[in-house]
Design a protein around this nucleic acid. Sequence first.
DNA 1: CTCTATGCAAAAACTTTGCAGGGAT
DNA 2: ATCCCTGCAAAGTTTTTGCATAGAG
Lengths: 121, 121
Amino acid sequence: MNAKEIMNEHNLKVTNPRASLLEVFLQSDRPLCYDEVKIDLKMDKTTFYRNMTTFEEVGVINGFESDDKKRYYEVSKTKHAHFICKKCHSVECLNEVGTLNLIGYQVDNFILHGTCKSCNQ
Amino acid sequence: MNAKEIMNEHNLKVTNPRASLLEVFLQSDRPLCYDEVKIDLKMDKTTFYRNMTTFEEVGVINGFESDDKKRYYEVSKTKHAHFICKKCHSVECLNEVGTLNLIGYQVDNFILHGTCKSCNQ
DNA sequence: CTCTATGCAAAAACTTTGCAGGGAT
DNA sequence: ATCCCTGCAAAGTTTTTGCATAGAG
């Protein structure tokens, strides 16, 4: 499913900035923040943040805060964990982290904070 | 061990603002941010943030970012997870969340994001 | 007495809001 | 033609920095 189809499905008008924005996230294998996206797209921050909010509202995109006060976004997909490195501030996706036993809570995202493999050497 | 003893142990000058600040965290059962602390203490934000940074540096306090762009702090103790509710923005401590199997990473903090028990009803 | 801590004011960093013009359907 | 989208400018929020004064050891 491409960007245009996703937007149509959620009744969002298909504009060039919006389509290329979603495309960037569809093609990324890790969460991205505004700083990373603006380099390629030269899109105004207002447009970025408003579209990301819209995508979050319709459930296409999942957003969360990193350690550096920036908000990271990724395409909603199978649930997985994220690792945020306090040294290099990288944000990675992790699969098969372990098992959770929590009753009564609805867990949308889990984030591990610490020192990543590279920085740990 | 009280606030004064802890500060002496780490060679930090014992001042009233600093002592009462640490006391608040010693007596709290959950992480706190500046907004919550200032209500009781009427301490300037500069003093708050600089002392928290100092406490973090000597290892007395552990800090992390919530979902609302605020930094939360708690007394360093046995490792445990935190749950941040995206609806009410509460920050809770959790014990016995599950097991982790991560090799090569050093995990300092584990944060679950979602909807808490109360908001889930 | 010396050196660190405090608090005000101002800056910094990221995100949001207001508003006028432009574009999709 | 209508209504949503875009981008500039300005404001909002949380945290940090500069600097003069006050206080601990």
